[in-house]
Design a protein around this nucleic acid. Structure first.
Lengths: 342, 342
DNA sequence: CCCCTGTATGGGAGCGCTCCCACGCCGGGG
DNA sequence: CCCCGGCGTGGGAGCGCTCCCATACAGGGG
């Protein structure tokens, strides 16, 4: 019944005995306002509990102070991966500092995806953070083409028709460090359970593994590479294949901890001891990795920093400097976490 | 330089040879518009690629079509728990269907928390979904008091001064089913590694455990209850305490899978076989639970459904019916997933 | 044949804000 | 002593939309 109406800038102005323009100036901190006036306005704002209306501001400034974090299907399924959790935390922290809002968008079906593209290019957000792990996602190019400020999480897709900013974690280097560790431990028949071939992370980790092998002058026969789907079960399956094709292997680099867990199980079932018979290194440094038996040596990724850098790059460069800004690439280093498995 | 301007409703009206009001009517699907006119407007919209300006609409309707999902500190830390992942998925799906946006808000420090409260009660969102696991969080009461539509995830805090809608998962029942399972397997000295006493989930699961014990006429001596912090390490520590205080226990109900993992490790280190010597049941049905050795019997929670119900309740009741709506409570059932551990 | 009703439509008003131009007042130079 | 420049300020205009009143027209009953 009361239909309370929130105080407006105009009410603040009247209460402080000044004009609307002055109140606006105080709120936006800009321009010169005499100290006395400023103080009077501040007091009026406090007394009234005034909060600026974002919609009205957005209408005239054409900025929404909102950025979207888009997680494409099927990555949404992977939401529970610590990878995304870290990114969300990092993004959220930086955006809060910048006074920006975080809109979380997940697209499920194809139709959703289409509509999401319309929505995001419709000017409802100031910029888009896109975590798209698959190389065939059309969204980044589409948004970049529409002039929407975009920052990618992960290496950009094959042919970046529209150059975009991105933040990546050095998958090649991380994988290489894992495999180098195995080489340094004297292993010579080193297999890998790689990730899916259509994900940049999968490709890059496989490449890093191979580079480390080549660097040490070790052969890289095809039977020592099997692809998994980053899941526990996929890792177990891949390991069974490996054991069949190359029973004499003495080490495994798994491109994800989840897969490493599956590998570990299969090895145990096959009676191979870890690390005595087969050394194992994973990737991701998930919570579980610290508690396996034996504890898993793995590659830690700075996911929270990645999210933070993405948000920073979007706010300070992509949005601030506009579409003419020189595309920037930030690549973050990984850290090898040595435990008992390899 | 081009400073492209997006088409406005007015431009659509001119192009279709109609008035603004008519275009608005077509867009909002309401009122009566003749089929011909409607078609002409539709065509003009398509040709121009017109997308309504949300800010302008929000300014006049006083609705933002945005709801916030708030995850209070320190739960943000728990973001990687599948619990939150499921909720986000469920919420997101329902909101998309309703044409609502999802604003993700996390508050870190106390100051943030304060500002967040201001923000959320400032009319920038149509409603708030609040996942607050600690019983002393002041936010729900504050928002409800400010007349902001709120739906809680989890049982409301102690004295709900302002009655609120909530969606909970039946922690009491879930825990009871876990303990009943142990009783049914013939166990008599059943310990529990409970959750923190200041979290509703912790309290409720302990209560369920006790009810099951009482129901079977089993004693519930104090040495068989130890509190953990829901973490792996906390579970391991708690189990060591239990082993010392009650070496003759023959079963353990752990109030989270993470803790169950720690329990499992401690039991193995102590030379107890699971489930032969000590049966174990966890809670959460995390991905890891299926792959432990032995696989963990645990309680599955419908997290995605919980998120969906929260969003539905917010959109269809809390927002639609306003503050006078009768507070609703939805309690979702759990499901016992029987594996080998207990 | 006219009036009344109802349906389809046009367009003014105004949401709360920022932008920007104009105005008043001050002090210093001519 | 007057004029000019600049700082501090007030307030009109207008962002793009929805709301709602007014208008126009078509029919049916008196």
């Amino acid at each position: 019944m009361g239909e309370e109406r929130r105080p407006t800038l105009e009410m603040v102005a009247r209460r402080a005995g000044v004009g609307r323009g002055t109140v606006s100036r105080v709120i936006n901190g800009s321009s010169r306002v005499s100290p006395d006036t400023r103080e009077a306005v501040r007091a009026a704002i406090a007394e009234l509990g005034y909060v600026p209306n974002r919609a009205a501001r957005a209408l005239v400034t054409r900025r929404t102070d909102t950025v979207a974090l888009v997680v494409s299907e099927p990555e949404a399924r992977l939401f529970d991966q610590p990878f995304f959790a870290g990114i969300v935390r990092g993004v959220s922290a930086v955006l809060t500092d910048r006074g920006l809002q975080l809109l979380l968008a997940t697209a499920r079906t194809g139709g959703d995806h289409e509509r999401l593209g319309d929505y995001l290019s419709g000017g409802h957000v100031d910029g888009v953070l896109l975590v798209s792990l698959h190389t065939d996602d059309p969204l980044p190019d589409r948004l970049a083409g529409a002039g929407v400020p975009v920052v990618l999480g992960g290496r950009p897709l094959y042919p970046p028709r529209h150059p975009v900013h991105y933040v990546d974690i050095d998958n090649v280097g991380g994988a290489a460090s894992a495999t180098r560790r195995l080489i340094g431990a004297g292993r010579r028949r080193i297999a890998t359970v790689a990730g899916p071939a259509d994900m940049a992370a999968g490709q890059d980790r496989l490449r890093g593994h191979r580079e480390a092998l080549a660097e040490a002058g070790l052969p890289d026969p095809p039977e020592l590479t099997v692809h998994g789907d980053f899941s526990h079960e996929g890792g177990a399956r891949a390991m069974r294949e490996l054991l069949e094709a190359a029973p004499d292997l003495d080490a495994v680099f798994a491109a994800s901890d989840d897969m490493a867990l599956g590998v570990l199980r299969t090895l145990r079932e096959a009676g191979r001891r870890v690390p005595e018979d087969v050394a194992l290194v994973g990737y991701d440094d998930t919570a579980a990795a610290a508690h396996t038996d034996p504890p898993l040596t793995t590659v830690h990724q700075p996911t929270e920093r990645m999210g933070g850098e993405m948000a920073r790059l979007l706010a300070d460069t992509a949005i601030a400097e506009g579409p003419d800004a020189k595309p920037q690439a930030v690549v973050l280093d990984t850290r090898l976490v040595v435990r008992a498995s390899g």
